[in-house]
Amino acid sequence: MIKPTPSQTVGPFYGYALPFAGGGDLAHGGIVLHGRVYDGAGEPVPDALLEFWQSDPDGGLRGAPGSLRRDPVTGAIIGRHGLDFTGFGRVATDADGRWMLRTLMPGLPYISVCVFARGLGHHLYTRAYLRDEPGDRLLAALEPGRRATLMAAEEREGVYVFDVRLQGEQETVFLDFG
């Protein structure tokens, strides 16, 4: 087993390299997941980058290429063609710490979230649960206060809110996959 290359912070200047047009638009006509990222003082984080990975509505985890599909003439990113479900999203927070994802309801009860930010030396994983599924191994292992930080709230039909708190009271549960 060889030793891994260390992580480093994404820094403040990823904005013209990583976010891409339609990065948060996996699919239309499904659900909306949105929220904000907060720091330990309760202030919104305007320079975080969130990535999302999820199963398709049948629970499949194959994904598909084409999240950054290109215009052959200009090279510009024109986004997914909408036929295949790529399962991958990437959104930078805005000046108010907000982000938004349009996607399909996953077959698994959660959408995986990876958080990068200036000031964060190593990214953090969490999950936005869209429903409480009895028997889910992670939810079952958490005490209720901590479990609540992983539950997206359905504000109105098909619109879910999920905030990420990097530190402090109601700090989001972050995950280690071993």
Partner: peptide
């Protein structure tokens, strides 16, 4: 990094 790192340990999945 001061206000942007979790205080709680990561939960192993």
């Amino acid at each position: 990094s001061a206000l942007r790192h979790p205080h709680q340990p990561l939960v192993v999945v």
